[in-house]
Amino acid sequence: MQPSVRGIDHFGITVPDIEQATLFFEKAFAAKVIYRSADPGSENIDDEAQENTLRLFPGTKVRAIRMLAMPHGPGIELFEMHGPEQQSAARPSDFGLQHFAVYVDDFASTIACFTAAGGEMFTEPKPLSFPAERGEGNAFCYGKTPWGSVVELISWPSPMPYEKFTNLRRWKP
């Protein structure tokens, strides 16, 4: 039996300030709020149910939740939570999800929007260097959001060498 997976629907990201994070994604990536599951001060959050459902650290309070639409691809669900023993954003060397990648057509304009929104770039765009990914104009760079989540900007306008050996393809917006 095969699972009936179609693709990634959304990513959930815990942020320290949902308003700041929403504004960041709007400015950096032209994301739009689809809906607000719960706003700050909302009475419709059952913290005990959230704690059990998501296996949150005991005592964590969910302050707000909203779903954003990116111009193309999966959505981003933002969670503002506060609780005991809360840690900073994971580094790429830590276990768990280490980054998400956003496909871009124009690095310069995307980097300008990303940094104007409060993000910090680690590098300038550089060529994809793994043999399976190389190609004219294929490039990437990394940065972080104001709260420390790592984001990759990537573009591959040229076919990748791996495509010669399999019918499987990376998803491309």
Score class of each variant (00 low, 15 high):
M1F: 03
Q2K: 08
Q2F: 11
P3D: 14
P3N: 11
S4Q: 15
V5N: 04
V5H: 12
I8Y: 12
D9P: 07
H10T: 11
F11D: 10
T14K: 09
T14S: 13
T14F: 04
V15P: 03
V15K: 10
P16R: 14
D17W: 12
I18P: 06
I18H: 11
E19V: 12
Q20A: 05
A21W: 08
T22V: 01
L23N: 06
F24H: 02
F24T: 06
E26R: 02
E26I: 03
K27M: 08
A28S: 04
A30H: 07
A30Y: 05
A31L: 04
A31V: 01
A31I: 01
A31M: 10
A31P: 02
K32F: 05
Y35S: 06
S37Y: 13
A38M: 10
D39K: 09
D39S: 08
D39A: 09
S42L: 05
S42I: 07
N44F: 07
I45T: 06
D46S: 10
D47C: 06
D47H: 06
Q50E: 11
Q50Y: 05
E51P: 11
E51G: 06
N52V: 14
T53N: 15
T53L: 13
L54F: 09
L54E: 13
F57D: 15
P58W: 15
P58M: 15
P58Y: 07
G59I: 10
G59E: 15
G59A: 15
R63V: 08
I65K: 12
R66W: 10
M67N: 14
M67F: 12
A69N: 11
G75I: 00
G75C: 10
I76N: 04
E80A: 03
H82T: 09
G83A: 09
P84S: 09
S88Q: 14
S88N: 11
S88C: 09
A89E: 11
A89S: 14
R91N: 06
S93W: 15
S93I: 15
Q98I: 07
Q98R: 00
H99K: 02
H99T: 02
F100C: 02
A101C: 10
V104M: 05
V104L: 05
D105H: 03
A112K: 11
F114W: 06
F114N: 00
G118N: 14
E120W: 06
E120Y: 02
F122A: 03
T123A: 01
T123Y: 01
P127L: 14
P127E: 15
S129L: 08
F130K: 13
F130L: 07
A132G: 12
E133H: 10
R134Q: 04
G135Y: 09
G135E: 09
E136T: 00
E136G: 00
G137Q: 13
N138W: 04
A139W: 10
F140Q: 00
C141F: 01
Y142L: 01
G143S: 02
P146S: 05
W147H: 03
S149T: 05
S149V: 01
S149I: 02
V150S: 08
V151H: 00
E152R: 01
E152L: 01
L153G: 00
L153N: 00
I154N: 06
W156I: 12
S158C: 09
S158G: 13
P159I: 01
M160C: 12
M160I: 09
Y162T: 08
Y162P: 02
Y162I: 06
E163Y: 02
K164S: 05
T166K: 06
N167W: 11
N167M: 05
L168T: 06
L168P: 00
R169A: 06
R169T: 05
W171P: 03
P173E: 13
